[in-house]
C-alpha cells in the first residue's frame, strides 16, 4: 500500500468519528430563520431565485407529494438529495460497511429508536454495501446503500414521519436523474432512490416493502 493511502486511512480513522457525533444545538440551523434569510436573498436576486427554485421543483408530481409543515422538503426530495450526495462517494459511500451488518442495523436502530431491518436485495441483483446515519428535520435518518455489481447504487432512506405528512401508499417521484419510490407507514417514511428506470425500481420497492412487512 502506498504511503499516501496510509496517511488518508489514518486521517479517516482519526476524524471520521466526528461524522457521527450528534450535531450540537448551535449548529442545528434554526430552520425558520434560515428559510427567512433564503427567501430574502432570493427576493433580492430575483433572477437567481428562478435558478434556485428550479432544482427544488417537483417535476412529474407537482405539489401532490406530502410536504412537511415545518417547511422541510418532503421525504422523496430529502431522500433523493441524500442519494445524490453519498451514492457518488467512491471511497466512503457508507459509514459502516456490510461486513458488520449486525452492528450496522443495531447501531442505526438504536439511534433512530426503532427496530430497523436492512432488506436483502440479492435476488434483485443488489448487494448491501452498508449504511450511514444522517441528520433530518425530525431527528436522525438511516440510509442503507446497495450496489449492483460494480455499478448502479440504490439507497433506502428511513426517516421518522414529519409533522403534516400523512400515511401514503407507494408513490413515485423524479428528482433530476434520481427516481424515488416512497411510502409512509405508521410513524416512518421509507424512500428507495436510484438512477434507475421506474419499472425496475418499482419491482425492488415491492420487495423492500414485503420484507419490511412480512
Amino acid at each position: 500500500m502506498k504511503p499516501d493511502d496510509d496517511l488518508g486511512r489514518l486521517l479517516h480513522d482519526r476524524f471520521d468519528p466526528v461524522l457521527v457525533e450528534p450535531i450540537p444545538a448551535r449548529l442545528q440551523m434554526r430552520r425558520p430563520a434560515w428559510i427567512g434569510h433564503a427567501r430574502a436573498a432570493a427576493v433580492l436576486a430575483a433572477g437567481i431565485a428562478i435558478g434556485l427554485a428550479l432544482p427544488f421543483t417537483w417535476r412529474g408530481a407537482p405539489q401532490t407529494g406530502p410536504v412537511a409543515s415545518a417547511g422541510a422538503p418532503a421525504l422523496p426530495v430529502r431522500a433523493a438529495r441524500a442519494h445524490v450526495v453519498y451514492a457518488v462517494e467512491v471511497r466512503h459511500p457508507v459509514e459502516v460497511d456490510a461486513s458488520q451488518q449486525e452492528h450496522l442495523v443495531a447501531w442505526l436502530s438504536k439511534r433512530l429508536g426503532t427496530k430497523l431491518k436492512a432488506p436483502a436485495l440479492t435476488a434483485e441483483g443488489f448487494e448491501l454495501l452498508g449504511g450511514r446515519l444522517l441528520p433530518g428535520p425530525e431527528g436522525p435518518v438511516a440510509q442503507f446503500m446497495y450496489q449492483e455489481g460494480a455499478g448502479r447504487r440504490l439507497t433506502l432512506y428511513v426517516s421518522s414521519r414529519a409533522k403534516g405528512e400523512g400515511q401514503t401508499a407507494f408513490r413515485f417521484a423524479q428528482e433530476g436523474a434520481v427516481s424515488v419510490f416512497y411510502w409512509i407507514d405508521g410513524n416512518w417514511g421509507y424512500a428507495l432512490s436510484g438512477e434507475i428506470d421506474r419499472a425496475t425500481l418499482s419491482r425492488i420497492s415491492t420487495s423492500v416493502y414485503r420484507q419490511l412487512n412480512p
Binding site: 476524524f15 471520521d16 466526528v18 461524522l19 457521527v20 440551523m29 428559510i35 417547511g71 430529502r78 441528520p135
Partner: peptide, 16 residues
C-alpha cells in the same frame, strides 16, 4: 437557501 441541502454537509464541515 435550502436547509436540508446544507444540513447534509454539516458532518463533513465538522470533520474537516
Amino acid at each position: 437557501m435550502d436547509y436540508e441541502q446544507v444540513v447534509v454537509y454539516i458532518p463533513n464541515l465538522r470533520r474537516y
